[in-house]
Design a protein around this nucleic acid. Structure first.
Lengths: 237, 237
DNA sequence: CATTTACAATTGTATGACAAATCATAGTAA
DNA sequence: TTACTATGATTTGTCATACAATTGTAAATG
């Protein structure tokens, strides 16, 4: 992987991005002026401005003469950007955020499985199967549980052969990581989970879109139902 | 709305972004060096570099010493970025791209309708209703057909009260525009289309998630089926 | 032949100066 | 008073120049 701090500007982007996501700078707030950022980070205006431009490109801030640098409304944020997702992860994800992730996964993953059953190439099938093997090894502790799980979901997405679904790789990865953090699954994958994944794989391999869709849907619905319950309990107090 | 070319860097971002999307610079290709871009656009290195950083932030290019500026693999592109979507629209969208858009809409919109039925606020309902009125007016030629249509779909997305779904506003808007371009719907919305939208609205208003989901699903499936047929015809030749 | 060294090309960073935009204020005229 | 105007101050926008850091290529060296 690429180091995310290849240069000064990238480092500043990360620092500021994190601070925006964790709420140090809230929507509508002004960030320090270019001059102040220069002194704070002890860098030149060149680097500072490049950082500001990058955050602008990701939809987090706007920067205008005299008006300064401001955090824009969150509906403009590029929530599917890799960096933004990582900053979200570094923040303090709550149950509501987890639910938002799960709601979109419920929309995406079954359809992705269906598309995979229709459009997967030989190599795509192999990738999914490889991920399954990793998951099986993970149940024996021979491989990393979480990585294998993420691997499986991503290989299905890629098998859809739809660039938009593939671009959601980062989203799914972050969703899974947050999910892991909440469920505290420090141990191996359960047999039931593994079997559910095998089912999805089989339907994709046999080119049964509807069956693949249904299999993926069940998994997602169960997970979402759990979180919905947790939230209901939380709100009833 | 904000002019997208508030300053030099933004203009360059637009020019280069368009060229990447229309294939002038293909994946793996090198863009002109900073120095060359400066002379080509007749601007300073400052502006050039800021533009390069913005495109980097959108995942389109990478820029390294001695290696130059290169278009990175399309799986890293932020396809859900407003600008990127607009550049895609400016390119030459083909039937396959339209299908990719429709496939994701099929995943997103029914679930969005379901969520809207569960989580919509009073104001959200009003927004959807307002969009419906615009559509009715559009059938009489009293309002812009396409705008009203886009308005409806976006208001449903927003009613989901899920930031990730809301962020897909731009995606849906672009999808609809491409759809319009292909179907050549220069005239008014059909009565059937309008009725379908009314159905979705009613189910959302009555807080019937599953019914809202189904109603939205049917619309999407029909559209996708048409395009799948067109592609099948095309490929059989 | 392998290894090291030196060079060249390209981006990375810093600085200083001035331009342009825009908000706030004070001043001016009706 | 009120509305408009002029002015000034603040902040980002742009430019030019210089040098540092990175890295691929080729020459020199053992």
């Amino acid at each position: 992987m690429e180091p995310s701090h290849r240069n000064l500007a990238h480092q500043v982007v990360h620092e500021l991005g994190k601070k925006i996501m964790e709420g140090t700078y809230k929507v509508g707030d002004s960030l320090p002026s270019e001059a102040d950022l220069c002194t704070q980070f002890n860098i030149s205006r060149t680097a500072t401005r490049e950082a500001v431009k990058m955050l602008t490109a990701k939809g987090l801030i706007s920067s205008r003469p005299r008006q300064g640098i401001k955090v824009v409304d969150s509906k403009y944020w590029n929530l599917f950007d890799v960096d933004v997702l990582n900053w979200i992860l570094l923040g303090k994800p709550d149950l509501y955020l987890l639910r938002h992730f799960l709601q979109l996964r419920l929309a995406i993953e079954p359809e992705a499985a269906s598309l995979a059953a229709q459009f997967a190439q030989e190599s795509d099938i192999e990738n999914i199967e490889h991920a399954l093997v990793r998951m099986k090894n993970a149940t024996n502790g021979q491989d990393d549980t979480h990585e294998a799980d993420i691997d499986f979901h991503q290989s299905v997405l890629c098998a859809s052969n739809n660039p938009f679904f593939i671009q959601l790789n980062n989203f799914i990865e972050t969703a899974l990581k947050i999910n892991i953090r909440f469920t505290n699954r420090l141990v191996a994958v359960t047999v039931e989970e593994y079997q559910a994944h095998v089912d999805i794989f089989e339907h994709i391999k046999n080119k049964e879109p509807q069956a693949a869709f249904d299999a993926a849907l069940i998994t997602q619905k169960e997970t979402l139902a759990i979180v919905n319950n947790q939230i209901a309990v939380l709100e009833s107090k």
